[in-house]
Amino acid sequence: MARVVVDVMLKPEILDPQGQAVHRALPRLGFEGIADVRQGKRFELEVEGPLDDAALARIHEMAETFLANTVIEDFTVRVDS
């Protein structure tokens, strides 16, 4: 079965306080040298049937209308091989 990965990230201009909280914790835990952290979501889709252009188009539509809120988030769709 083919796997498609959809990554969803807050747009660069949107404040990400969760990422900031992770970033602030790093020095305390001994992890140095990280300039910034942004937190996002990853969806792994197990696709039934052939992964053709039509199937990928549907997944793109799913990501755009449901998995991501494009008012605040960007997304990428890629086939995991």
């Binding site: 807050l10 949107i14 404040l15 306080p17 969760q18 909280a21 809120n69 008012v71 605040i72």
Partner: peptide, 17 residues
Amino acid sequence: LTESHLLPGAMLRNNHL
């Protein structure tokens, strides 16, 4: 309502978490 696009914009986690 914002998710439905009946109103513009979106709601996010409070800035102080």
